[in-house]
């Protein structure tokens, strides 16, 4: 199969969803154009932005960091060590190795040192690991960005992630979540830093191919905590549809993002579902919150209490 762009070199990547196949060089051009068009169309980033890129060691976040650096954005990487035996060490190694190869030193937050490693926290408060992980990560993304004077937080969510989330929100008619789902969540004066998902137009296959061809050594094993994640069920359903009808995912998501779609209120509807009034400072840590204390501090307090109950001697 020949490259559909240059028509000379042998194709390295076939993309049925785009009715295309590209050689390595033309695929790099195609991929970067998909990302930069995604940024431009939704005005995710400005040239003067200081971007905090949240990197997990997986393909999407490392590819995102790579592309943003190549496009000339001022970036730093943030790695959150979740405290998952073995997996976290291997992920961190990949992040550090990649960062070193680009002359960078990532910011590292160690949740064990913060007193809230994910597996133990999940046991203490009897919640799903993914749910706790989401709350904790969002908290540190914002805190590190605010403290480091970053203007924007970027995550590696791709088209497959976003359409899986969209399908889940539609199946459960989560109207409040649908209203807020967008690759751009604007910042607020009260300290919420703008969040963007510049890979919203590219699929997982495309980011994996880009990472592989660029020689980015990413962690290929899946997080052991996410084996039962519902997002995987939605992803499988969508990939079955994509197999039969290539291009469905991007049509689905672009249609959703269309400003005329009544299900969406646009990026201005960024406040959480339980938001009442304007955000204020958390009484415990000062982070922006709509409650007395932020969800991270409430969770940390529950973990602390559960831990002290376990440690207390049993009276007879």
């Amino acid at each position: 199969m020949k490259c559909k762009r240059c028509r000379r070199a042998e194709a390295a990547v076939d993309l049925p969803s785009h009715h295309a196949a590209f050689c390595t060089d033309c695929f790099f051009l195609f991929f970067r154009r998909q990302v930069t068009e995604g940024i431009r169309k939704l005005r995710l980033l400005a040239p003067e932005d200081r971007v905090l890129v949240c990197v997990s060691g997986g393909k999407d976040s490392l590819v995102l960091w790579d592309v943003l650096m190549d496009e000339g954005y001022e970036t730093e990487g943030l790695y959150i060590d979740l405290g998952i035996d073995g997996y976290s060490d291997r992920s961190k190694e990949k992040v550090l190795a990649y960062a070193t190869s680009r002359g960078k030193t990532p910011i590292v937050v160690d949740l064990a040192k913060e007193g809230i490693p994910i597996p133990e926290a999940a046991r203490c408060v009897r919640m799903q690991e993914c749910s706790i992980c989401g709350t904790v990560k969002r908290y540190f993304f914002n805190r590190v960005a605010a403290e480091g004077k970053f203007t924007v937080v970027a995550t590696g969510h791709n088209l497959d992630d976003e359409t899986a989330r969209l399908l889940g929100n539609l199946l459960h008619w989560q109207r409040d979540h649908l209203a807020r789902q967008h690759p751009l969540l604007p910042g607020t004066d009260e300290g919420l830093v703008r969040k963007v998902k510049p890979l919203w137009r590219v699929s997982e296959v495309e980011t994996a191919a880009y990472g592989f061809l660029k020689g980015i050594d990413y962690v290929t094993e899946e997080c052991p905590m996410s084996e039962d994640a519902t997002s995987l069920v939605y992803k499988e359903a969508l990939s079955r549809i994509e197999d039969r009808m290539p291009g469905t995912r991007i049509v689905f998501y672009k249609g959703f993002l269309d400003p005329s779609n009544p299900l969406r209120k646009g990026p201005e509807a960024a406040a959480p579902a339980d938001a009442v009034g304007t955000p204020r400072a958390c009484a415990a840590c000062g982070a922006p919150t709509y409650a007395e204390t932020c969800s991270y501090c409430r969770m940390k307090e529950r973990v602390r209490k559960a831990r002290s109950l376990r440690a207390a001697p049993v009276s007879r």
Binding site: M1, A12, D160, T220, S226, L232
Partner: peptide, 20 residues
């Protein structure tokens, strides 16, 4: 590519790209 013809004696790796 998916239409690439693989010959006998070759070793290929199939890498899952699905993250959860």
């Amino acid at each position: 590519t998916k239409d690439h013809r693989v010959e006998d004696g070759t070793t290929i790796d199939v890498i899952s790209v699905v993250s959860g």
